[in-house]
Amino acid sequence: MSTLTDPSAVPSGGRHSLFRAGLRRRATPYLMVLPLMGFIAAFTYIPIAASLNLSFREWDFLSPDKPFVGLDNYRLLLSSHEFWNALKVTTVFALISVPLRLLLALGIASYLVRETLPSRFLRGALFLPSVTSTVAIAVVFSWIFSTDYGLMNAGLQLLGAPKVMWLQDPQLALFVLILVNTWKQLGYDIIIYIAGLQAIPQELYDAAAIDGGRRRHVFRRVTLPLVMPTTYFLLVISVIDAFQVFTIVDVMTHGGPAGATDMLVNMLFRVGFTLFDIGTGSALAVLLFVLLIALALIKSRFLGRNIHYGS
């Protein structure tokens, strides 16, 4: 390490090198940040602008020009049954799976919060699916819920009940997907809740115990309000997850039967990469993007008050 290249030492070569040393010192953080920022700009921010631009055009990926069609793509989407069906299915998926995940996770986490060996083991077991391949999980559960060779129907038969066509029944398929998604994500939610619960100062519980608070009461008055930031974080994450669910649907039902499990991202994939209707696909991507940002904003307004004061 020579002092000649040291920006913090006084350079020995007069004004010119003083200027250069200063320049280098000022350039350093930019040089370090630039590579990552370049990737983020090229593959996240420019594409958002590109999506918006393409959503006002008509293009099939092959033809040489992309005529501007104004809001036609949006009009087409908003008047199609396909879009409203996908929006409905995705909303139902989110409305059921998000509360299910959070309630189960908080309930289980409050039992596993202690650092004992059994609780650590259970945490590990519950966490495992969340780092496991979603495709593999979807394949395994397709098999478990398969009509003729599945574990579920084998169990039903043992009880003398008839076989159920889990993934072919429009009423049931969506619930199977919700179940599989919950099974996969639950461990992650639990780990986050445990960290949130462990951050609550023990003195508050001690004080509640001195006041003679009953367990349920303490949970409602101490635990629940104080894990509110964690709940808020998980709510945001899991709603975004739910509106972006794709893999388990693509593998297990492919949107069927009869569109009963057709989610927004599956529709986006179909319109964009099977039909190569780039304009409509981009319009769908923009609508979904706007929807998710709106949801995040509504939630922060709605929950903002509760985070600090509790209910």
Binding site: T44, P47, I48, S51, I240, G281, A285, V286, F289, A296
Partner: peptide, 11 residues
């Protein structure tokens, strides 16, 4: 916070 699906087609 940016849903990744919006970058699929442009990328």
């Amino acid at each position: 916070m940016i849903p990744s699906h919006i970058t699929l087609i442009p990328n």
